[in-house]
Amino acid sequence: MTDQPKTAELPGPGGNPPAGAKLSPRKKQQISRAVQYVLLVAAAVAAVLFVDWASLAQNFAKPEVAQESLPELFTIALKNTLIYSVGGFFFAFLFGLVLALMRLSPVRPYRWLSLVYIEIFRGLPALLIFLLILFLPLALPGFEVPGGTYGQGILGLTVVGAAYMAETLRAGLQAVPKGQMEAARSLGMSHGRAMVTIIIPQAVRIVIPPTTNQFVALLKDSSLVLFLGVSGEYVELTKFGNDLASTHANATPILVVGVTYLLVTIPLGYLATRLERRQGKGR
């Protein structure tokens, strides 16, 4: 190479790149970084110039309309969203646990039944389930879901949630080391007793992170309750926001409701992390 001696003459370990030489990787990175910042600033300037901020604020963040949503936003809508999703989660968890235990049962028909249920209800859209529940009284005359509107909403979420929960819990049960069951059995516990005292508590700890995700998914699916034709005191967040937005011909309630969902889901994520860390002590 011809420019090698020239580089050696320059002061300092790196020196300036000699004229005509290729750019160093560091230089290339600096240039690329600069281009990215320029693009970002350009996009921000364009947004400020071309977006009609006044109209946007009018339609999405109108304080008067937001004010209008109080206090029902919390006393009715959020309360109901929580009733539907916590209720659905509770029963989905119990039913999912039964399904998971059936899936691991030595009794072949149990395994088979559980598998069929999981495959069907994991594969169907949640909305379809809610529509089916709506038609339940037609199919079974005289039958009524206990708990009225709440019962219907919770049933829908349970049916869907249980299928997912079953698979999660099965994975959790199988993740508990085999030696735990052996130790419990060697102490004279029956299979069932060992499951309840030793295996299930550990499986539940293992599935805390995926279960948190499932609760968040269930919370969002609770919006489908609006297809049950709920009204008045039974409305949950999405229905509430939608109704209010229609009344005022303004999208602010949708934004307000969105923020309310996040008020629940984001702290929940932190809570799950903390729970996980606390349980980690026992691992």
Binding site: Q180, E182, A183, S186, G188, Q279, G282
Partner: peptide, 26 residues
């Protein structure tokens, strides 16, 4: 099995319980 104690290579203590709980649970 109540009359036969067993000690395993991998200990197999119950990790979600304290030492005292491990020894009292059964």
């Amino acid at each position: 099995r109540r009359r036969v104690g067993m000690v395993f290579q991998q200990f197999n203590l119950f990790p979600h319980m304290t030492v005292l709980e491990n020894v009292t649970i059964a």
